[in-house]
Computed example of a mutant assay.
Amino acid sequence: MSIRFRSRVPEGWTVDSAVRPFRFPGGEWHFAWPERETPVSAVLTGAEPDDLVLLALWADVARERGVRSVAYIPYLPAARADRGTPFGARVYANLINAAGLDEVVVFDPHSPVAPGLVDDVRIVHSASAVRDAVFGRHGLPGDYVGIIAPDAGARDRATRVAELVGLPVFTAEKHRDQATGALLSYAPPTLPAHGRLLVVDDVCDGGATFVALAESTGVARERLTLWVSHGIFSGRADRLTEHYGEIITTDSHPGARRPEIGARVIRLHPYLIHDDTSPGDPRNERGNER
């Protein structure tokens, strides 16, 4: 399971719930909700279908207790399946909507399509998290000289980061086989000859796109940093370490901590809850979660 629940206890603190889901012999999920806990939120990472069942059970408890049900689903399942048949984004959105949640918070979705299918959704963009992780809270560029968008689809998110830190954006172009969709080559932009460059995108699965991008630029490994909001890091993604001096992602997906990648993993939750605690601060502040 990749879901956890947050509760408020009589002492006034917001804590991880003590609830322990279990399965009946017939296969159905269930749990006994602790009487002293008031549901506050559910946090779901990854895309395990069992977690969506547990999410719906938790939302039912929240309704019975008369409190709001807020689900943080930073990695929106099937966000990349935003066209075609079966229409995966719609199928997963329907599963989430069936829980009857009061609010669903997602982080840097692949496109507007999938979140547009989810009821009562709030989208959190990645720019502030990227700024803080790479440049610090004050957004000082340091020895960075530019932001690279791997393709036209990543230009908007790369531009949001660039505007925060005052750097130019360089956009690469992909060339694909129209029949198979396979990546044939990259047309890299003209890049500065010196200084570090930050590649910004939403998802890294097997990493082939980012390997091809790095190879096409000819930029030395120590000059390239890779930010991906959702690090799945499947298959041969470990090849990324040959091309990027640092890889940074968030804890939105269980794959983020694959040992062979050695990514720096950013705690995302503070960016999702809009509290006044500094992002990354591990303190459990009273009342800092809605």
Rank of each mutant, 00 (worst) to 15 (best):
M1E: 10
M1I: 12
M1A: 13
R8N: 07
T14S: 12
D16W: 11
P21Y: 01
F31D: 06
W33A: 07
W33L: 07
E37V: 06
T38S: 10
T38R: 13
P39A: 04
A42I: 00
T45P: 04
P49F: 00
L55E: 06
S69R: 04
Y72M: 08
Y72L: 14
P74M: 05
L76F: 10
R83S: 13
F87H: 12
A89Y: 05
N94Y: 00
G100N: 03
V104N: 08
D108I: 02
L117C: 02
L117V: 05
D120K: 15
V124N: 09
H125W: 11
A129D: 06
V130W: 14
D132Y: 03
D132S: 04
Y144T: 06
G146K: 02
A152W: 11
R157T: 07
A158W: 08
A158T: 01
V165Y: 10
G166A: 07
F170S: 00
Q178E: 15
T180W: 03
G181N: 03
A187L: 14
P188H: 06
P192K: 11
G195T: 05
R196H: 10
V199W: 03
V199D: 09
D202Q: 09
C204H: 02
G206W: 00
A208F: 05
A212T: 02
T217L: 05
T217S: 03
S229H: 09
S234D: 13
G235V: 10
R236L: 13
D238P: 00
R239C: 05
T241N: 09
E242G: 05
E246S: 14
D251W: 01
I261S: 04
G262D: 08
I266L: 03
L268V: 06
H269A: 12
H274Q: 15
D275T: 09
D276W: 10
T277V: 14
S278V: 15
R283A: 15
N284S: 15
E289C: 08
